[in-house]
Structure formats: structure tokens, C-alpha cells
Write a protein that binds this DNA or RNA. Structure first.
Length: 548
DNA sequence: AATTTTTGCCC
DNA sequence: CTTGTGA
DNA sequence: TCACAAGGGGCAAAAATT
């Protein structure tokens, strides 16, 4: 574990991506055969292989475990946390300051750490939390401060060293002299970076193939702004369909047995029994990409109603009736023994349309082909925008625009698939509280709580960090420090003077904030130094937007 | 038995 | 899900 | 262009606590 900690420090202190990859490649290459898979998994920032499930150790358990091993009080932790904005770094500090552990103890190996994590993940039932806490405390007891720092970061799943799974692919390619694309392809099929590491080492990458019963990674789309010039679109054929607000999912049928996988590759078949039932017994084996939707009378219900069905272990009959689900299929990755990810979308779509699997719970996503002549002219722009409006009128988020010639590229967010969305409106809100950020933002006030007006009162409606540049955040930090009303921990109540323009997806009723409303996907569009708090948006405006 | 806390994961 | 950053 | 870091709202499940 010492080597892993030292590697992470070195990677974190290196800006160059190629240099980071070189460092990790060296580490992976030098590893004992039995530990390579673990090393690769850890380098990807995961405590466990994806298939092992969740660790279920969070900040609370880690703090309790740390308290067993190191003597500290709350203010010690708070101070150390302020220095790092990260519990891993904070704990390392606390351990440095405390009594050094005995020189005579077994050094911590990554194998030991991995097996302890696996054991923790298996804990369940009464007392499980205590058991996990004890297991983690046991690791900390044997750890040096540096090792403890990275134990914490692994458990959090955030190494924060500018290095994750996608770069482990490059590192494996470099370490074992294999083409990066072979490694990437093996990962797509296997899903387990540890297994892929062993295949790369043993020159057996081609043996990882897509298999029924295992999820294939999802292809992603790049956002394009409504009303822009659509310069992202190139000459060629595109498929245009509605962008549904549901749960991305992969449906598979193998020998009549259905599987559903979530975007994070979890098996969620059990949560959606009506969809599974509709697919059970299907005579054709296939893998389809699509969206799980709350579907009634040919229309998708709002995401809010879908959310009550997320991660349900056993949805009861009443819920099944009130939020009925369908799978909206829009791509075909495999049919029988043929894998189609390298085939162009045009062909995949054609074969999807002929799939003998459709029913009320397994629906074909409607769409049309569009010939784009780049650069997009006025006529084509208005055509796209009227298609967009039609999609909105059907209650959907916007449009998906997919290059007909493209293969299915898991994990990539390139110029093959685009999502066209538009914000409904923006709100001008007053910043009433700010918080110190985490990680590299630990010394700036990066997180704003903002409010709208109601009579002479300000009522909070949301929080946001994203949207401002680092420079703007740094400048405003100074202002907020000079205009602080009170402080509690890392949160400051500030004079209500700064107005920010906030964009969002939708407004929904919520008990989280004083206004009685909350925003989905809030982000700061810009500072509004030209506006005073008396010109901020009102609760009535928010209420009106919630009707949409 | 009912409520609260913690966690993970969907967008 | 979103945005900004840097190689 | 790509991969990454950092952050939001909201829900269900599993345990812990009352």
C-alpha cells in the first residue's frame, strides 16, 4: 500500500496527462502477478470491482473509524479539514501529529486492503455498520499517514489526482505494449478494469467479448445549445428522435431470460418487473439500448413520478399501477450471435425496427432521418427547431441527433451523438450564504445558496457552484469575507447584495428550501452586478415557472 | 413500531 | 445531470 | 478534444436510534 500511496502523490503532483500515464504504467508493470488486478482497480479510483457492489462506507463511518485509531476532538478535525478540504488529507495530518505507530507491524498490502474492502461490502443485517467501521478502523491502525490518506480517498471513490479509469486504459496499453484501442474494447466487453489488466499482461485482450448477461458500456451524447449555429453538425445523414426524460437502461434477452442494466451498469431487472415480464420468453437473443419511462397513453410522465420507482427492490401492485413503465428502445447492440457495435447506426436502427420483441412495455422510439448539409443554413435550422418544439409539445426534453454512419462507442462523448436542450427561463437570485468548497476549492467560497424575493423577505430556493470561472470565484471570495454576517463551520451567512442569474431545468415543489421550491440542475449563468437585490426575481415568478 | 441517519445512485 | 479547466 | 474535478435535487433501502 505504501507504493500505491507514493504513486498517487506523484500522479497528483504531475500536471501532464502523458506523464501521469507513464507513472501509472510503471507501477502496474512492476506489480506482482497476483496483485495486478487490484492495482488497476485502485488506480481507477475504485475500492472494489464494479461487480462487487457498493462498499457502504461513507464519511460518517470513516470518521468513527478514524476516531478509534487516532485521538482527536471535533475542532482538530475541523481545522485539518479546513487545510485540505478533503478528509483523506485531514486524517493524514492528524496521524502525523499524533503518536507514531509501532515500528513492528506487518506492512499493509493492497491485497489485504482489497480483501478487507470485499469483506466490508458483504456485511449486512443488524450490526453491519459497526462491523464495517471496525474493518476500516483495522486498516487505519496498520496504515502510515500517507496510506491512510489514500485509504480514505479509495473508500470515497475519489482519488482526486486527475486520473481515473479512462487513463488506466492508456496506462495498461503503455505498460504491456498493447494498442490502447484493444484495451478499451476489452474493457467495454468486460466492464472490469482488473480483469482487463490481466488480459493485457497475458496478451489475451481479444478473449474479452461482449456476452449476454453482462452490461455493455453506454454511449453518451454531447450537448448542443438551442438557437446556436449548430456548427457541431457535419455533412451527412443523422437520425433525429425525441430526448426522453427517463432512466437510461440496457435491455437484454438471453434464451428467454430478461436483464435490465442501469447507466452505472447495475443489474436493475428486479425493479422493473413489468418490463422484464414483457421480454421474458422472447425467442430472439438481443441487447438494446433505451430509456425506461413512466409511460401512459402514449406519453412520458414527468421524471418526478419515475423517481419513486428508482432502486425499488420490490415495487408493490399499487405502485406498478400508478407508475407503469415501458422501455423505449432506440439502439440495437447485439442480435443472436452477432454483435453490432461496429456497424453503423443506420444498420443498427434498421435491425432494431425488425426485432420481434415489441409490446406495450417495449416500445420502438420514433424518429426520422435528416440529411445535414454543413454548415447548417436557415432552412435546416428552422426545421430542427420546429422538430424540437414538437418534441417539447409531446412532453419530452428535446431532441437527440445521431450520426447515421457512427458505430456504438461506449463511454465516449464525441461528435456522433448530440442532445439538443433548452432552458425554460432563468432567475435572478440573491446570494444569502456561501460555503467553502472541497478538494482544490477548499480555500475559496465556491458554493452559493441563493434566494428570491417575497414581499420584504428573501426565501432560499437553491444552491449552485457550477457556472462561474475560477477567477470570478476567487474575486467574490474576497467580497464575501468582507461582508460576512455570521459563520457556522464552513458556511457563511453573507449580506444579501450579490445578484446571480441562475439557469435550471425545471422548478419543482420541495421542502428543502424556504421558498417551498427547488431547482433541478441549477447553475450560475453569470454575475449580475448591474442588478440590486430589490430587482431579484420573486416567489410569484418561481411559482409560475413551477406550473410548466 | 416509528422515526432518523447514512449511503448510493438516478437525473 | 451540469460546468470550467488544462494538456 | 478529451478526461477530469467539483457540484446540485431527490428518492429508496438499510441500519441505527428513539
Amino acid at each position: 500500500m505504501r507504493e500505491f500511496g507514493e504513486l498517487c502523490e506523484a500522479v497528483a503532483n504531475t500536471a501532464s496527462r502523458t506523464q501521469k500515464v507513464r507513472l501509472v504504467a510503471g507501477y502496474l508493470k512492476s506489480h506482482a502477478p497476483s496483485e495486478l488486478a487490484i492495482a488497476a482497480t485502485f488506480c481507477s479510483g475504485r475500492p472494489l470491482p464494479v461487480s462487487a457492489g457498493a462498499l457502504r462506507i461513507g464519511g460518517s463511518q470513516m470518521l468513527a473509524a478514524a476516531a478509534r485509531v487516532v485521538a482527536f476532538d471535533d475542532s482538530d478535525v475541523a481545522k485539518a479539514y479546513d487545510r485540505h478540504g478533503d478528509f483523506g488529507g485531514a486524517l493524514a495530518d492528524l496521524m502525523e501529529a499524533g503518536p507514531q505507530r509501532s515500528l513492528f507491524h506487518a506492512p499493509l498490502t493492497i491485497a489485504k486492503v482489497a480483501s478487507t474492502f470485499a469483506q466490508a461490502a458483504r456485511c449486512s443485517g443488524s450490526g453491519a455498520t459497526r462491523a464495517r467501521e471496525a474493518l476500516f478502523a483495522g486498516l487505519l491502525a496498520d496504515a502510515t499517514p500517507l496510506e491512510a490518506k489514500y485509504l480514505v480517498k479509495l473508500v470515497t471513490g475519489e482519488l482526486r489526482m486527475g486520473f481515473k479509469e479512462a487513463l488506466v486504459v492508456d496506462a495498461l496499453a503503455a505498460a504491456f505494449d498493447r494498442p490502447a484501442k484493444d484495451v478499451r474494447r476489452a474493457l467495454m466487453a468486460s466492464g472490469d478494469i482488473g480483469e482487463v489488466a490481466e488480459l493485457a499482461r497475458d496478451d489475451r485482450l481479444p478473449s474479452a467479448t461482449i456476452a449476454y448477461g453482462k452490461p455493455v458500456g453506454f454511449m453518451l451524447a454531447s450537448p448542443i445549445t438551442f438557437g446556436g449555429r449548430y456548427a457541431e453538425l457535419e455533412d451527412g445523414e443523422y437520425f433525429v428522435e425525441d430526448k426522453f426524460d427517463g432512466i437510461r437502461a440496457q435491455a437484454q434477452v438471453k434464451d428467454g431470460q430478461p436483464f435490465l442494466f442501469s447507466r452505472r451498469l447495475n443489474d436493475v431487472t428486479i425493479s422493473y418487473p413489468e418490463v422484464a415480464a414483457a421480454l421474458r420468453g422472447c425467442s430472439t437473443n438481443f441487447i438494446a439500448d433505451g430509456e425506461l419511462l413512466a409511460w401512459r397513453d402514449g406519453r412520458a410522465l414527468p421524471f418526478k413520478s419515475l423517481q419513486t420507482r428508482l432502486s425499488r427492490v420490490a415495487p408493490d401492485a399499487e405502485l406498478l399501477a400508478s407508475v407503469p413503465l415501458s422501455f423505449m428502445a432506440f439502439d440495437l447492440l447485439a442480435e443472436q450471435d452477432e454483435f453490432l457495435i461496429d456497424h453503423p447506426l443506420a444498420e443498427r436502427r434498421r435491425r432494431l425496427e425488425r426485432l420481434p420483441a415489441f409490446s406495450d412495455q417495449f416500445v420502438l422510439s420514433p424518429g426520422t432521418w435528416l440529411r445535414v448539409n454543413a454548415p447548417v443554413d436557415d432552412l435546416q435550422r428552422s426545421d430542427l427547431e420546429s422538430r424540437f418544439s414538437a418534441a417539447r409539445a409531446r412532453g419530452n426534453e428535446g431532441l437527440m441527433i445521431k450520426a447515421a454512419a457512427s458505430g456504438y462507442l461506449p463511454g465516449r462523448r464525441g461528435r456522433q451523438w448530440f442532445k439538443l436542450k433548452r432552458e425554460l427561463a432563468t432567475l435572478d437570485c440573491v446570494v444569502v450564504a456561501v460555503e467553502y468548497g472541497h478538494g482544490k476549492r477548499n480555500s475559496v467560497l465556491s458554493d452559493y445558496t441563493f434566494a428570491v424575493r417575497n414581499d420584504d423577505k428573501l426565501l432560499t430556493v437553491g444552491k449552485a457552484y457550477s457556472g462561474l470561472t475560477d477567477v470570478e470565484i476567487a474575486e467574490k471570495t474576497q467580497w464575501f469575507l468582507q461582508h460576512t454576517v455570521s459563520r457556522r463551520g464552513r458556511r457563511l451567512i453573507v449580506e444579501p447584495e450579490i445578484v446571480v442569474e441562475i439557469a435550471f431545468d425545471i422548478v419543482q415543489p420541495s421542502s428543502l428550501h424556504e421558498s417551498g421550491f427547488a431547482l433541478r440542475f441549477p447553475r450560475i449563468v453569470r454575475l449580475r452586478p448591474d442588478k440590486s437585490p430589490t430587482e431579484a426575481s420573486t416567489l410569484d415568478e418561481v411559482r409560475a415557472l413551477a406550473q410548466h
